[in-house]
Write a protein that binds this DNA or RNA. Sequence first.
DNA 1: AATGAATGAGCCTTCATTCAT
DNA 2: TATGAATGAAGGCTCATTCAT
Lengths: 198, 198, 198, 198
Amino acid sequence: MAPKTNEQFKQIRKESKAKILVASLELFAIDGYHNTSISKIAKHAGISKGLLYNYFESKEELLKEVVVMSLEDAMTISEEMLVQLSEMSPSEVMKTSLEMFFQMLIENKTMWKLTFSLAMQITNMPSITEVILKMFGDVLQQFEMVLQLNGYEDYKTEAKLLAAQLDGIALHYIIFEKTYNLEEVKEKLIHKYCKNEK
Amino acid sequence: MAPKTNEQFKQIRKESKAKILVASLELFAIDGYHNTSISKIAKHAGISKGLLYNYFESKEELLKEVVVMSLEDAMTISEEMLVQLSEMSPSEVMKTSLEMFFQMLIENKTMWKLTFSLAMQITNMPSITEVILKMFGDVLQQFEMVLQLNGYEDYKTEAKLLAAQLDGIALHYIIFEKTYNLEEVKEKLIHKYCKNEK
Amino acid sequence: MAPKTNEQFKQIRKESKAKILVASLELFAIDGYHNTSISKIAKHAGISKGLLYNYFESKEELLKEVVVMSLEDAMTISEEMLVQLSEMSPSEVMKTSLEMFFQMLIENKTMWKLTFSLAMQITNMPSITEVILKMFGDVLQQFEMVLQLNGYEDYKTEAKLLAAQLDGIALHYIIFEKTYNLEEVKEKLIHKYCKNEK
Amino acid sequence: MAPKTNEQFKQIRKESKAKILVASLELFAIDGYHNTSISKIAKHAGISKGLLYNYFESKEELLKEVVVMSLEDAMTISEEMLVQLSEMSPSEVMKTSLEMFFQMLIENKTMWKLTFSLAMQITNMPSITEVILKMFGDVLQQFEMVLQLNGYEDYKTEAKLLAAQLDGIALHYIIFEKTYNLEEVKEKLIHKYCKNEK
DNA sequence: AATGAATGAGCCTTCATTCAT
DNA sequence: TATGAATGAAGGCTCATTCAT
């Protein structure tokens, strides 16, 4: 049998890593970071505990990579959408941006839950704090653009309000779970921001 | 010679309990429930680990009492303010309610932090979840009233939006700490809700 | 008010001590030594934890005194009965001795349970071991006398057998509780030892 | 390089488990269940505290397995002997059974000590109580058979007496240790039961 | 004599991490 | 690369004992 090429090894590593990251994300989001043991993750990912340490230096490092991965995923989607936005009218951009947000909220509920959860326990893990804060900042910036584009004068403050509004909705959606009527809120919000209330 | 009187013991118990509750609130809010060990709490409160169990049956029970205490504090303030509202005009009620919210946010930052933190972290602690959910519900209800009073037709959905808006602001205020310009956001929000945008 | 006399103080001390000893015996026998906390004993005796240490140096010391008290009680009863035996015929002595044993077993089940329980965990408490061993020795000696009196040639070995027989019955009675038909066994045993089977 | 094979792991597990069980049996029997800490067991077995929980879910579970192991050992021996009995005359069966008992008492002194100790100490551990009671029941049943075979009319009650006799002897043997002349008692007992005293 | 708040050692248990294979 | 046995620090909790009053 021919020895595996470097390429093949890299591929295997990448896949194994991905498998662990996905498993971790799920467990961290559902049970919380502290209630998720390395053992559980390894079992959930179908590998041994030892192997996990071959890919990640520590549990905290693993968490950080989970967060980074999640955010990168989100950014990728977001950027793809931004391309589409470039050809729209300002009011269409506004509407689409909001719809994008709700879509991502629904599709990545797990990630949102993890993000909020971590955002609250930030104190002890600076490296993770940083990533999380960056993400909140990015969203803010994006909405600043959209609002400016739509002619909002005080667009910086307005963006802060809108970002807070959206994060608040996300928070409630996560907390109240199935009880929460996200669709209703979404319609109302879009209606508000896509009329003439500058 | 004589044993301490009942009164004396009661006093001592009350003070020690309060001391523990305050220490716990701070640590739970800052470091999160899981990152706060009984040892840390005891040290922070200046007592021995063992004594803590003279007052609270378990760590979970302690958390519950911390939450209840915090909410009772908040409710007391809130109710005092509600009395004042009864004599105001609808628009004044609106404005005052919002101002009240921001005031409580600033004054009870620790409690807010704890609440959000728990909302995300606590799995499998029904008695605490219950208390937290009740609190979110109460705020919502209060704003439904205010909005209805101010003639909002779709006041139920509007209340959901407003509650989310406020919780979102609180969230950002907690996450960004001193970086966050709360005053600016407050002015803008009040301005929005106290003009004619129903 | 006249100050209490020394006699009165002594009396109070004696009564308090007795109250504690009785409470301890009950709890030790039912729940076992290790499952019985000083707190429980104090509560059961209706006094404070602190006071208990006024009368007994330590938990182990308390146990020792409980054992001693129990055995003294048993000895007292036993000796009273011995007086009666002195006027009987050998075979009557035999029968009465056995009946005495069964009566004491029923009336002092608690004490028997404690005794056996302690007898098994002897290693760590020499002072208690001593007392327990003495008790077993006393019973043995007593039955040696009875058997000798009844003309058993090899009365020393016979006494060992009889003592073992009785302790075995006691053991089963304690272990099987209500399931055990003590009366049936008693009749059979008396029948065996009071016929002509030397 | 290659990971250990399943076979190797199984072997390691088996040996470690056995090591722990043996250490536990000794300590439980000597010091009693409550006086034996997990730390002591680990030290005695030459392993770390943590490893113990790799093999046993809890201290109670460990105790249970110790008991089960002990009884299985005893049963194995017992059954091997029963085979031999099938070809003997009734009086030979009687004699051999008694001799078997004494042999097992000597060879498995530790197990007997543990059994008695637990019988007295264990409250609220139904699964273990059950096993212990079953064992006493088994011995009883076996002797019922033997006595019936030997023509004892009231063999059920006689078996209770004999079982008590034997357990009493075992108890004394355990309590008095080297002081106890087991051989003398054995001879006498066999002599009694193998003559004509029905 | 009497109280119970307070202490601290020790218990059982969990789990991130290491390591021989 | 891959395994899981093994470790040890730390966590929540209990309880005998002390002490100020």
